[in-house]
């Protein structure tokens, strides 16, 4: 008959068994406990016993606090009743209450920003020498046209607008004023 190994179960081993049963032991301790449990009935019994308790403990959830008590908001003067049915509150609660959700949202935002930078990055255009010369010529032509228009505008202003439309009425006005002065001196 195959005989199972027997060895002393000290406090250190018991601590490892308990941690393994509750699921927070490191991988080496878990393996050690697992192999020792296979070879020793007492270790196995302890592990099973603590594991059963751990499972029961982990099934316990948080107690629900009745809603009637939280429909209150403190103010400087006292307590005011208030309803909490707010979509924004629920949304923000989900985001802030779960670290994974916060992490997911943060990663999503960073990814979106990075993707936007890569997708919309301005690309450098390469032009041939011929294209540059054509563009230069077209620019000179355009500037020449603009210069011509400026010259025409200047001559129109000087010959037609200033002399005919501005200087002439001013001269006429001054003539009328002189006439009136002369009339006044005679009388």
């Amino acid at each position: 008959m195959k005989r199972k190994k027997s060895f002393e179960i000290n406090d250190k081993l018991i601590d490892k068994i308990i941690s393994a049963a509750y699921g927070d032991a490191n991988i080496f301790d878990k393996l050690e406990v697992y192999f020792k449990a296979r070879n020793n009935n007492e270790v196995k019994r302890l592990l099973d016993s603590y594991r059963a308790t751990a499972e029961e403990v982990h099934q316990l959830g948080e107690e629900e606090y009745e809603d009637r008590s939280i429909h209150f908001r403190g103010t400087q003067n006292g307590i005011v009743e208030e309803s909490y049915n707010s979509f924004i509150t629920d949304f923000l609660t989900i985001i802030f209450s779960r670290s994974t959700a916060s992490l997911a949202v943060t990663i999503f935002i960073i990814a979106a920003v990075v993707a936007t930078l890569f997708v919309y990055r301005p690309q450098e255009q390469k032009y041939s020498q011929q294209e540059i010369q054509i563009a230069d010529r077209q620019t000179r032509k355009a500037l020449a046209i603009v210069g011509k228009i400026f010259n025409q505008t200047q001559s129109t202003l000087e010959k037609e607008v200033l002399s005919e439309r501005v200087a002439k009425p001013i001269r006429e006005g001054i003539g009328i004023v002189n006439y009136l002065f002369n009339q006044g001196t005679k009388q």
Binding site: E64, Y65, I70, R73, Y84, S86, T89, T93
Partner: peptide, 17 residues
């Protein structure tokens, strides 16, 4: 108020438990 609501929604059961 919004901050308070978030905190209460998040921790009321923890405090009570």
């Amino acid at each position: 108020q919004q901050k308070y609501r978030i905190l209460i929604q998040q921790y009321k059961n923890k405090i009570y438990t």
